[in-house]
Design a protein around this nucleic acid. Structure first.
Lengths: 188, 188
DNA sequence: CGTCTATTTGAATGTACTCAAAAGCGGTGG
DNA sequence: CCACCGCTTTTGAGTACATTCAAATAGACG
């Protein structure tokens, strides 16, 4: 039970059996079907999710009806609206399942307890956010400095697996372009 | 000594005098003149910097000679190339002073020691990176979904102080547009 | 098989860029 | 203190990148 989850933690911290137990007691599991909405923008994001199967999409809705896909979260990735989760504010982003998906999750109150009982977890999430920080920084400079064509080529190279699993309209919204223009790029 | 630095830490953690002392022993100070380069892309970023006066700019050079400004770091902000700092790789970003600037800094080896002696610091940086993560996420969705005009208007609103201190060409490179186009936007 | 949604295609438009030249501004030296 | 030099900002014309709108085609699902 929870093997993948603890493998993920093991990337940055070592846990004794009793420590794993402490975490396990706060851990929950959920299955969500394709197209189901896990978090609706405006709601409170009370849990942080870890994907064990399938794929989630974190996205933002814009007033004009368009969307931006912030992140795709396949197996072994984490997902949440971090501002809502950590500051108790309404979420800006929505999260939905692109496939039938299985997740583990911890509530924010349980995580706060765990931070106190197990300071190692601060280390784990410090490194997780540090890496996420660097990832978004790189994506930001890419978005600000490169054409859609370059960004698409890089996406293909970096996430070849996702290419075949994710609808083009979602890839387009991840790249910050329209599905129509993505289709034009692909023809080249 | 180091008041602003410890005020910054106090935003997220409480420190006893002896704990401050442990940190102080690892802390260094430096003054850099306007236009001086603090970190050159390709070098190793061995320190994490905290600005007490002046303003730093973190930026990336592109093959065509253009630049992207990733972040402006005035008083009370942190600066470093986090991948280089945490993983010991050559840095992708450069850091320079936009004004005569004073900084406090800790080396990566000293910070590792401090993480072990003072697990609270893991918490501090966990929250710092968590916030930075959220900040870049928001900037990314803005860059992907909004026109340069909207982004410029928002920059003015969010950082009115920086507006009057930072050259337009740097603001343009922060917004991901050319100085020429920024000038056109401003005329409207 | 039919319906609904996603993708492709084409034409017209808008946003942002390049190149080039002029104007403005700041610092330095005479 | 002024004149000059170098760099930044502005302005204009022409171009490239990406969008909108509309219609046709292709795919997915019941």
């Amino acid at each position: 039970m929870y093997e993948l989850f603890f493998q993920n933690l093991a990337k940055h911290i070592h846990l004794e059996p009793f420590e794993k137990h402490l975490i396990e007691n706060r851990l929950q599991t959920k299955t969500i079907s394709k197209n189901d909405v896990l978090l609706q923008a405006g709601a409170y994001c009370r849990n942080i999710y870890f994907v064990t199967k399938g794929c989630l999409r974190i996205f933002q809705n814009h007033p004009d009806g368009s969307e931006t896909s912030v992140l795709f979260c396949p197996r072994d990735w984490w997902a949440c609206d971090i501002i809502s989760f950590s500051q108790g504010l309404p979420s800006v982003y929505s999260i939905e399942a692109l496939e039938d998906t299985e997740i583990n999750f911890i509530s924010s109150t349980h995580l706060e307890e765990l931070y106190n009982e197990l300071p190692k977890l601060e280390r784990f999430f410090r490194i997780l956010f540090q890496n996420g920080f660097a990832l978004y920084q790189a994506r930001l400079t890419l978005a600000l400095s490169s054409s859609a064509e370059v960004r698409y080529a890089l996406f293909r190279k970096q996430y070849p697996t996702l290419m075949n699993r994710i609808a083009q309209k979602h890839i387009a919204s991840y790249l910050g372009i329209t599905p129509v223009f993505l289709s034009i790029i692909r023809k080249r």
